[in-house]
Design a binder for these strands. Structure first.
Ligand SMILES: Nc1ncnc2c1ncn2[C@@H]1O[C@H](COP(=O)(O)OP(=O)(O)OP(=O)(O)O)[C@@H](O)[C@H]1O
Length: 712
DNA sequence: TGGTGAGCGGTTTTT
DNA sequence: CCGCTCACCA
């Protein structure tokens, strides 16, 4: 990521500020307060301010009111495409232009994609280096803070971040530590435990309550489950590891349990701004409140109609309750949609009005007319894929770049047939789903070697790395770990390990290369070059292993070379590892079909598409049972959340939308089933869409094409 | 330790 | 239907 160097130093701001006092504990009473430096502001004459950004021209009055509003709590609640993100970004720009140091601004959101888009926009506006801003996802900001301050709650700065799979394994290990009989009584597995645990943490609710609601059949096991949770936490503590939730939970603990840190945090950030606030959960809400406690410059924006993360404990109670928690909050609304044509907006508004629980919002179109959204039934899944592929090509011919087109769906598996079709036709695409690149087994194997060097107490990684060697499996790996675990630095202990006690014959010999490998990795030159470290691991042990172990060993080694190239931009192992677990993007096969190209159609889940926009969008699989998913369709809240998801999907489009659904599909047992159109389609009034019928071209050789014809 | 085969179970969505 | 887990064997 290259960021333009900031220029125009002199044009900085309208006011010259004298040094602002640092916050530190008062030696007398121990309370935190600013140094008694007198603050004096030298004002520029009225009208003489020059801003690089032309706020008057680029914002409407409603938006400008938010951008120019002074300090204090701010809530913006508004519909899709009304410029919430834009307003937030301009507010950040304005703050910086008015002299706030970027490092004193905290800018948060939930998904990586949205975070990146937000930071990119700030950068474009000001050519300021956004790395100075404390901005990103809640998790990445939490992680940055914990590296610096986590020692206050017993976390050393080199902690490992556990991904979902890791944390599931730690749960399984915890269960087996306690020697719980998992078979007789059907004890929940790691992933189930992890779900329950995570939901409890994120909602801040009491565990028995969560258990009763989400997995009542395990109620008799409550006591044991709680013991496993405790063991899980213990394991993380001794392994110096954090799961995703810990990045938030420990952040909150710093705020609530370590008063000096709490005060320092709250004082260090003049402004806290949150996008997509409707998708925060209790834990994140508490964090925002904690960070804003002293200065109360908390600006949040969101849209309750786009709340789509209740499955991980998000609740729009946060956004609706904001005015109560901040009685002095200024509440703003934005009512003009800048993104979509009136036709698209009419469909979206009409759909969302079916939700009982909704907060009425004005949302009018500002753009000129466009085509009616198309509703397109297709005979089956492969016809759906062919239709979409053809339509994408037509749109491309009409002048849209491929990158301005997106296909959205409810669940990742739904993209499969389309991928095949796009590949067949050589249409480049980018897919944001599937096993993510850094979660692939071979990638994690190699990373385990680096993790061990960074955090020698990382049991999981030790074992993972050890098991790469011949004759070493779970048993021997445990023996080795047991021999070094007690040492203050297991890395040192491992290198000094003479004849490891009671290793099976042959296993010991296998450790020799590992020992020299570790020694080499621990050298300054490799510690500062993740790319070289990766290549070194691959060349010295992993290449042989991969070729022997995997039928597609070659392809996996190519992945690892890609990994090394990606790592090239990092200059330290910890920095690299952190990004890799937190910024876990794209599947291994992300670029398909033909030449690598920048211009690619995007295939994405609706969840990941939030806050983004494209010229034209296809929403596929709009069949009852698929979108809404039949799981969600069992409760009224579930359906309403799915409908919000549909609303998000449709409102991603600026110019044109197609809604497609197959009438016949194979269910998961391989049986063909007839599918009804999604209720989200059938409940729409006639006049907001155009119904298409698709027929196969009559048997003419060559050119395949289907003529979509409007009916009625 | 690691490979094989029978049987089970199972589809959201993210960090 | 198919991928994955678990139990069993070399
Ligand atoms: N005043 C304006 N002038 C011109 N373009 C605008 C204005 N306000 C917003 N836009 C454009 O409208 C589009 C939608 O804005 P933005 O993404 O900020 O909306 P949003 O409310 O965050 O949307 P959503 O919640 O649906 O993600 C963007 O392309 C943005 O640049």
């Amino acid at each position: 990521m290259s960021s333009p160097k900031s220029c125009h130093k002199g044009a900085a701001g309208p006011e010259v500020r004298l040094q602002c006092g640092k916050w530190r504990p008062d030696p007398q009473c121990g309370k935190w307060r600013p140094d008694p430096i007198k603050k004096y502001v030298l004002r520029t004459e009225v009208g003489a301010r020059t801003y690089r950004v032309d706020y008057d021209r680029e914002l409407n009055e409603e938006q400008k009111a938010v951008v120019l509003a002074g300090g204090g709590p701010i809530l913006v609640i508004a519909g899709a495409g009304s410029g919430k993100t834009r307003t937030l970004v301009y507010r950040v720009a304005r703050l910086i232009e008015s002299g706030t140091d970027p490092s004193r601004i905290m800018l948060l959101t939930f998904t990586n994609k949205a975070a990146r888009e937000m930071l990119r926009r700030v950068e474009m506006l000001l050519s300021v280096d956004t790395r100075r801003l404390m901005g990103g996802t809640f998790h990445s900001v939490g992680s940055r803070l914990l590296r610096r301050f986590g020692s206050r709650i017993g976390l050393s700065p080199n902690f490992t971040i556990l991904d979902e799979e890791d944390s599931r394994e730690v749960f399984d290990a915890a269960t087996s530590d306690l020697k719980i009989q998992t078979l007789e009584k059907r004890f929940p597995k790691g992933d189930v435990l992890s779900d329950l645990y995570s939901f409890t943490i994120n909602t801040g609710r009491r565990f028995p309550e969560v258990l009763a609601e989400r997995a009542p059949h395990f109620l008799p096991l409550e006591e044991e489950i709680v013991r496993v949770f405790q063991r899980y936490q213990e394991r993380k503590r001794t392994g110096n590891a954090c799961d995703y939730d810990d990045l938030l939970l420990s952040w909150k603990r710093l705020l609530s349990e370590v008063p000096e840190i709490a005060a320092q945090f709250a004082a260090s950030y003049d402004h806290v701004l949150v996008d997509e606030y409707q998708d925060t959960n209790q834990l994140q809400g508490d964090i925002v409140d904690g960070m804003g406690k002293i200065r109360r410059n908390v600006a949040v924006v969101g849209d309750d109609a786009q709340a789509i993360y209740s499955f991980r404990g998000a609740s729009f109670a946060n956004i609706l309750g904001f005015p109560e928690r901040y009685p002095d909050a200024k509440v703003f609304r934005l009512t003009l949609n800048y993104r979509s044509t009136p036709e698209i907006l009419a469909l979206a508004n009409s759909s969302i009005s079916h939700n009982q629980k909704q907060f009425e919002k004005d949302l009018r179109a500002s753009r000129g007319e466009g085509p009616l959204p198309a509703v397109v039934p297709l005979a089956d899944v492969s016809e759906q894929a062919r239709f979409i592929a053809q339509r994408l090509l037509e749109w491309h011919d009409e002048g849209d770049a491929l990158a301005d087109l997106a296909v959205l769906y409810r669940a990742h598996y739904q993209a499969l047939e389309l991928q095949i079709e796009l590949t067949r036709r050589g249409i480049p695409y980018e897919i944001r789903s599937g096993t993510r690149f850094f979660e692939q087994r071979h990638v994690k194997d190699v990373l385990a070697f680096l993790k061990v060097v960074v955090n020698p107490k990382d049991e999981l990684s030790w074992k993972r790395a050890l098991k790469i060697f011949p004759r070493i499996g779970e048993r021997s790996a445990s023996t080795v770990w047991a021999a070094i675990a007690g040492s203050p630095d297991p890395l040192v202990a491992f290198r000094a390990l003479g004849e490891p006690a009671s290793l099976p014959r042959g296993a010991d010999a296998a450790l020799k290369p590992f020992r020299s490998l570790v020694t080499r990795l621990d050298s300054p030159s490799l510690r500062s070059s993740p790319a070289e470290a990766i290549r070194f691991v691959v060349e010295s042990v992993y290449a042989d292993y991969a070729r022997a172990k995997f039928p597609n060993g070659g392809a996996r080694l190519d992945d690892l070379e890609q990994l090394a190239q990606f790592a090239q931009q990092y200059e330290s192992l910890p920095g690299f590892l952190e990004e890799v677990t937190l910024f876990n993007e794209l599947s291994g096969e992300d670029v398909a079909a033909g030449e690598p190209s920048d211009d690619r159609v995007v295939l994405s889940s609706v969840h990941q598409a939030k806050s983004l926009e494209w010229s034209r969008v296809v929403v596929m699989w709009l069949s009852e049972g698929r979108f809404p998913s039949y799981r969600a369709a069992t409760t009224e809240e579930g359906v309403e959340e799915e409908r919000r998801l549909f609303y998000v999907a449709v409102t991603r489009a600026k110019n044109e939308v197609a809604l497609t659904y197959p009438m016949l599909a194979r269910d998961r047992y391989g049986v063909d089933v007839i599918l009804e159109p999604s209720r989200f389609v059938s409940e729409l009034p006639e006049d907001v869409s155009e119904r298409w019928t698709v027929e196969l071209e009559a048997e003419v050789p060559s050119e395949e094409s289907k003529k979509p014809e409007p009916v009625n």
